[in-house]
Design a protein around this nucleic acid. Structure first.
Lengths: 211, 211
DNA sequence: GTCTATAGCTGGATAGAC
DNA sequence: GTCTATCCAGCTATAGAC
């Protein structure tokens, strides 16, 4: 990978971070990367294609960096703790913001939508594998839709990041509330058989209502 | 309110809906509204100010329209059901998408950030008041941070909307998983005193860890 | 209040020198 | 591979006729 290509990939991410999807342009990215604007078209063909390439490359790196940390998680509470730490670090690095901006842009950009779905999928798959491990042998494992739960967690983090940008105290309170919910789930895991049966029945009924 | 001003307000929302925050421009909005582009500056001063005005006006209308429906909610499960119905309707109308685009734009636009925080706050306040009513007399009421929970629910809906744009099946599965979680909370509400004490203790410990 | 016209800028993208 | 120069479209915003 030539130095210029790498600088452009980094510059694209940095621009998305600092200026958002509305601020992405060939000139902004080239300025951030410290290279000539025309090189974007020489190396990547278009701004859109550079953005796609940059998102693909960046996410692979981040997920790999966190895989190790996810591997140490052994309970729901720990998952939420690691999740919060991860969210805070990634937020400070600006990476959750990048994903949020990608998602916003992807709503009206087919190519960006494809790569963003992949990016999101990488995180969700990581969360899902942790959930499977953490929920092994718990009453949830037999009734919960683990992939669905993983997707819900991903989505919530994205939403929290965006909300944090306009109301930081509110978002932090929301994160704390989700941790309370995690603590609650742990208690449910330790329920006796009667309550467990009632639980399963209720959840089944809810599933039936959805059809 | 003159017809032109109203057309511009509607046109701004419609543009945000159809083209996203990156597609917002005086020409796009005026085209959508079917009026001359220069009138934006005559009536609102700038595109940014029009956007702010439009968001303010539109949200007030939507929240008022749903207040009645929220008022009939009497349980957590019902809240999730109304929430899902509301989300589907608002999604089809494109209103959640508008909020998501506003949040994305607000990350790098001070004026938009202020009005978006207000918009988000209106929805969160509505959810919060329902939560207070629904949780009255339940074990949650004494320990849960209801405003935090309301903020978490708002944030999750925003995240789900964005994720739905790139992975609809995944987002729908996530929504279903959240409903399972709601069914679960209802069971917890019916716990006996022993489990309830254990629950409170766990949640307190989690709170202490957060410091 | 609404229009046309336009200034002045920034955008994507390309041609062609080196 | 990288640069300069440039085209043309689209952008915000204003001036001035009506």
């Amino acid at each position: 990978m030539s130095d210029t290509k790498q600088r452009l990939l980094d510059g694209a991410m940095e621009t998305l971070r600092k200026q958002g999807i509305a601020g992405v342009s060939a000139r902004n990215i080239a300025g951030q990367a410290g290279v000539n604007q025309a090189l974007i078209f020489y190396h990547f063909g278009s701004v859109d294609d550079l953005l796609v390439a940059a998102c693909t490359a960046a996410t692979g790196e981040r997920v790999a960096a966190y895989r190790e940390r996810f591997a140490t998680v052994g309970s729901l509470r720990e998952l939420l703790e690691v999740g919060r730490a991860l969210h805070e670090e990634e937020r400070d690095l600006g990476n959750v913001a990048v994903l949020a901006q990608m998602l916003a842009g992807a709503q009206h950009d087919e190519k960006l939508a494809r790569v963003t779905a992949e990016t999101l999928g990488m995180w969700t798959a990581e969360i899902e594998s942790v959930l499977h491990r953490v929920l092994a042998g718990s009453p949830f494992a037999e009734m919960a839709d683990v992939p669905g739960l993983a997707a819900a967690i991903s989505a919530s983090f994205v939403g929290l990041e965006l909300c944090e940008g306009v109301d930081r105290p509110g978002a932090q309170r929301a994160m704390a509330a989700l941790e309370q919910l995690g603590a609650l789930l742990e208690v449910v895991e330790e329920l006796g058989p009667v309550a467990r049966r009632a639980l399963r029945s209720k959840v089944s009924k809810a599933a039936a209502r959805r059809g």
